[in-house]
Design a protein around this nucleic acid. Structure first.
Lengths: 217, 217
DNA sequence: GCCTGTGAAAATATTCACAGCG
DNA sequence: CGCTGTGAATATTTTCACAGGC
């Protein structure tokens, strides 16, 4: 059994592949047949050479002198990213942000299926969002076990995020996306990824002010 | 006038400084006096040496053999990130995600103040969120001009994001945080930063599956 | 001729390891 | 003695430049 290429794709490349996939999907839906790296790179907001290097991780997939066949490339990236298989996700914390995620149809077309929404507040339990009913936190372990959910999303207040993380990990979830503004500790074998919206704003603001300083000097 | 150190701090460092700031704020609120790089690094989820290197961009600010004075360091980072000055932000697209951001008190303590919420849907206009009233999109330019808002946040559907971006840029906004799943083009001098929630999920899922493959082989 | 695929080079970022100071 | 601050070493990422095929 040959191992055609190194199985590890850099994380930065994976993130961009997901972006290319979206652009390609739009192009394909618009009936576009082929696209060159320059145009695709511009639509994705990256450098053309970098895009080609990213794609090189998938093996040759373009036609020299022409470009890439839109649908073929789309399917290739989708397969590598595992969009085909539907992955069961649970979401804990159904505030505004949690509701936004539960409602967002985009996840479904990208291989994710929410199979459980949970909230500690009795007032939230029973609400219907995105075709699911919000359940009490006590049901978390049962649902994870029954659905074999491998992904958990935390949109709770910071104070309870670590305890939710512990429960998710203990229940068998292997990957956790954390929106709470705390750094979570998880046992080995469980991957935690953090998205901090206020950090994003702060970086943006800082880079803006830094740019102003540079312009003056 | 001397320029004590290079004025450009790497973007990755800026993002981590924002995280350190939050941890330090928590520690200070808990009455903690000093903290060593090891503990601070663990709480922030980074390597201790990296943390010290990040802080070195601010100039010496620790005590050898002891660690960092929590409140001093907190204030130092806050000043560098510009948390003191309050920056006016407008938010366009008051769906679930927009509401979550408008409601999130954390921005206020970090130097951001929402001064305008906008939505195209008449049903949304007039709603009260986080102390503000949602206004019609037509008011966007007037509010940006009147408040001198320098930051815009886009949480609209993808289809209209580019046109909102154009209007924000034309109205004088210099920094834009985009949550819509499209890559935006902006004129020079206007900074766009993108947060794509489904890309984050996709990266998480991919890294999880890649890890499984590695364990087997 | 044109655009891909890719080695080589440059730029960044991370990690190590230890000198230096309190 | 312990912990900071930092140069040196390493790893990673980005960019360039061009060989090679259509």
């Amino acid at each position: 059994m040959i191992q055609p290429r190194p199985r590890t794709i850099p994380e930065a490349t994976v993130a961009r592949l997901a972006v290319y996939l979206r652009v390609l999907t739009t192009l394909a839906d618009g009936g576009r047949g082929t696209v060159a790296s320059g145009e695709l790179a511009e639509a994705a907001g990256v450098n053309p050479a970098g895009l080609r290097k990213d794609l090189s991780h998938l093996g040759p997939c373009g036609v020299r002198g022409v470009g890439y066949e839109v649908r073929t490339l789309r399917d290739r990236i989708a397969r590598v990213l595992g969009v085909e298989r539907s992955r069961a996700c649970v979401l804990v914390g159904i505030g505004n942000l949690g509701s936004a995620l539960a409602d967002y149809a985009g996840f479904g077309t990208r291989g994710f299926e929410f199979v459980g929404l949970f909230d500690a507040a009795p007032a939230r339990v029973g609400q219907h969002i995105g075709g699911l009913t919000v359940r009490p936190l006590a049901d978390l372990e049962d649902v994870v076990a029954a659905t074999r959910a491998s992904i958990g999303v935390i949109t709770t207040p910071a104070e309870v995020a670590q305890s939710i993380c512990d429960r998710l990990a203990a229940a068998g979830v292997r990957s956790i996306l954390n929106f709470a503004p705390v750094t979570l500790a998880a046992p080995p074998g469980v991957d935690v990824r953090k998205v901090d919206l206020s950090v994003e704003l702060q970086v943006l603001a800082f880079l803006g002010q830094q740019r102003l300083v540079e312009e003056v000097s």
